[in-house]
């Protein structure tokens, strides 16, 4: 297989990112529209922090709400997709560096990926 240049690698990654951002925006806007059709509580609750239940704080909770068409879960799912785009960017870089046979940078990008997965792992608890 031909080794891709850095620029080709970056272009394919950037195209994938735009797709990810668009998909995330579409899902969360759809959730937002559903949300606005519902009666809801006063906005004063934003003034005082309340961590809330696991429904919007864990991936399984968000997914559970999604399946039941809960609007806030749907927005949150879109936001999780958005948070995943830079992670996908790093995954693509690991693959790209591997195709370029650049071992040093396969290692470097894998370390970055591990740190990201460590952080996202909190959402899976």
């Amino acid at each position: 297989m031909r080794r891709p240049s850095d620029h080709e690698l970056e272009l394919s990654v950037a195209g994938m990112l735009r797709f990810g951002v668009t998909a995330a925006a579409v899902v969360s806007i759809f959730g937002g529209l559903l949300y606005l059709r519902q009666p809801h509580a006063s906005i004063t609750r934003f003034q005082k922090f309340n961590a809330g239940g696991p429904g919007l704080r864990t991936i399984s909770g968000i997914w559970h709400g999604m399946v039941h068409l809960d609007p806030r879960s749907m927005i949150q799912f879109g936001l999780v997709l958005l948070i995943a785009t830079p992670v996908a960017r790093v995954v693509f870089c690991v693959i790209g560096f591997a195709r370029q046979k650049d071992r040093l940078y396969v290692l470097v990008s894998s370390i970055v990926l591990l740190v990201l997965l460590y952080s996202l792992g909190h959402g899976f608890q």
């Binding site: 806007i29 937002g32 919007l56 704080r57 949150q76 999780v80 958005l82 990201l116 952080s119």
Partner: peptide, 28 residues
């Protein structure tokens, strides 16, 4: 910037810092 932000976003999410109503309007 995006990769750096994603490294704290998972922790923020699990703590309930990301409120969907506020984050959606601001993000868009």
């Amino acid at each position: 910037i995006g990769v750096t932000a994603a490294a704290s976003a998972g922790i923020y999410l699990s703590r309930g810092y990301i409120d969907p109503t506020i984050a959606l309007s601001v993000m868009l």
